[in-house]
């Protein structure tokens, strides 16, 4: 009882003073079924070819009130590259591009998260691709966080984000056909994550 009173007193003080007790960010697991990791690359100047990765896993911690303590980690199976063309996908898996047999995974691990607007931010992190690790910054829009409306999801809390970035693939050693095949790759992430 004394403990409860003490807790109430502390809570009351904090509420009156307008401060909140520090709390840990919520942990989320990326929902593969509703997440897309998409890339676009200039094809000989004619068009931008679109591809995506079908297999990945990742987690994030997110605190709307204190975005700075948020974090993101994703591991992508490079062999799951998919451009809707089997022969091209086989080529993309070869050492000419993603070198999937030697480097089965590419990873992104955030190192810094900054808030830039009401629902926007920057996520900087290390992208490891083809054995090389270099920093990348993504522009992120926080779309929504709410309990899933469909009954089969049992009210799980879902957070949704859209992220955009671009990088020069040659900086990671992926130089095949540069500059005829674009060096710059645009990357889109559309992410839904379920609270653990």
């Amino acid at each position: 009882m004394r403990k409860t009173l003490l807790a109430l007193a502390v809570f009351g003080f904090v509420s009156v003073s307008g401060e909140r007790p520090a709390r840990a960010a919520d942990s989320f697991a990326i929902d593969q079924a509703h997440t897309n990791i998409v890339f676009l690359i200039n094809h000989l100047g004619y068009s931008r070819m679109i591809g995506q990765f079908q297999e990945f896993e990742g987690s994030l911690t997110f605190d709307e009130a204190n975005v700075g303590i948020s974090a993101l980690e994703i591991a992508i199976k490079t062999a799951s590259v998919d451009t809707d063309h089997q022969k091209r996908d086989d080529h993309l898996r070869s050492p000419d591009f993603f070198n999937a047999a030697e480097f089965p995974e590419m990873t992104f691990k955030s190192t810094k998260v900054e808030k830039t607007g009401a629902n926007t931010g920057k996520v900087t992190g290390d992208l490891t691709l083809l054995g090389a690790t270099k920093p990348v910054t993504m522009e992120v829009t926080f779309n929504k966080k709410a309990a899933h409306p469909l009954p089969q999801y049992n009210g799980v809390m879902v957070a949704g984000f859209s992220a955009r970035t671009s990088l020069l693939r040659s900086e990671w050693g992926m130089k095949t056909f540069v500059p005829n095949l674009g060096d710059e790759i645009e990357i889109w992430l559309e992410v839904e994550a379920h609270k653990k």
């Binding site: 050492p95 030697e102 083809l130 054995g131 090389a132 050693g173």
Partner: peptide, 14 residues
């Protein structure tokens, strides 16, 4: 064709 690879080279091709 490929440029001078980084050293140490991470990939077998390099």
């Amino acid at each position: 064709f490929e440029g001078v690879p980084d050293f140490p080279p991470p990939a077998a091709k390099q």
